[in-house]
Simulated assay, not measured.
Amino acid sequence: MRTDIFARLDREPEPPKIVAPRMSRHRIALFGGTLAFYLAIVFAVLVTSWLVALDWKVMLFRPYQQWPELHAFLDYYVVLGQRGPTAVMVACWLGWRSWRQHTLRPLLVLGTALLLLNVTVGAVKLGLGRLGPHYATQIGSAEMFAGGDIFPSGHTANAVVTWGILAYLATTPRARRYLSALSATVSLGVGLTTVYIGTHWLSDVLLGWAAGLLILLALPWFEPLIARTESWIFDLREQWRARRRGVRPALAPQDGPQPVLLPQSIAGEGAAFAGTAATPAAPATAAAQMATGVATATATATATGARARAHTPTVCPERPPVAPAGSRRPPQHPDHGSRTTASPARPMTGG
């Protein structure tokens, strides 16, 4: 008897039906509030407000010098927000779930979220071009449009999306609450770690949190597309399996008259019957050949049926047939003698 964790997981029942989240009013309100916060952060940095002054104060405080004993641990902890390693870890877990639940939705949701993350966060990074704290040139400046790529924080946004996917795909409310708390703690720690190391401003982290949360809140809008993609992939798999087995798909019925296949004997009689008529000219196309074959087969069947009716005796259904009286022998020709009479004697000639 197996006692390991895989034996216990094999005995667990699969969820009967996975319900995809919908864009409810509560979620739309959260999306609108997060978007307003996102735009407010961008505006505050563009106008060099008090938020930029706070960025400089935290940067000049140099947290990595105030608590150097945390530096070794946080260098490894910040990897939880790096896109490559986290995507591989979460994809392995979701791949196992996809295999167990017989669905591709977990992997497709992860791929959709990462694609949205790269497009939206990458476009804002390149568009605003903010320099990081280690490359700042003027104290008190926002360092915008200078060729940088740190606003918003990619590590923070990636931590929110990658670990938040686990809570988004949870199948029970209890698991969703626990995973939401776990993903929030990890993403909060990753963002503050980037500020501690000095690779991001504090406003970068705030905007990264908002960017990742916007992607998670917008995922229900992409659920119909994810469902259609999953169905399309499964259809391609079935077609590939059918080709491997050598099974050809059934052809759709065509409109119009179809050629009639006749037995070989009837076809031979029809050919002999049609031989007495003039031979038509050879058709120039395949369609003409098919039409000629149909006409010949129809004429053959008609002629054969007529001959069969001509040789069939007609019996009155109201009166049973009566056997004719007398001998059943046919009358003999007068020139032929009866076989029972003796033949005339031949003249005897002397020898």
Rank of each mutant, 00 (worst) to 15 (best):
T171I: 14
A272L: 14
V205Q: 00
R241W: 15
R176H: 14
L206R: 00
L213Y: 14
G268C: 03
A210I: 01
L262F: 11
G256P: 01
R248P: 01
L207W: 04
P220S: 00
L188Q: 04
D255S: 03
S183D: 12
A271C: 05
S203G: 01
R177I: 07
W201A: 05
E223Y: 01
D204L: 13
E269A: 14
P220N: 01
Y196M: 03
R176Q: 12
R174T: 14
Y178C: 13
S231P: 01
Y178E: 12
A271D: 09
V190N: 09
A218C: 09
W209H: 14
I215C: 05
P173T: 11
W221Y: 05
T185R: 05
T185S: 12
L179Y: 04
Y196L: 02
I266F: 07
E238N: 08
F222E: 00
F234Q: 02
S183L: 07
L225G: 07
A184P: 11
A272R: 15
A175N: 15
W201L: 05
L188E: 00
R244A: 13
W232R: 03
R176E: 15
A267M: 13
T185G: 07
V186T: 07
G189R: 06
D204G: 09
L217Q: 01
W209M: 01
L213R: 07
G268S: 06
R245E: 14
L206V: 00
G246W: 03
A267G: 11
G256Q: 07
A218G: 05
G189C: 10
W232F: 06
S265N: 13
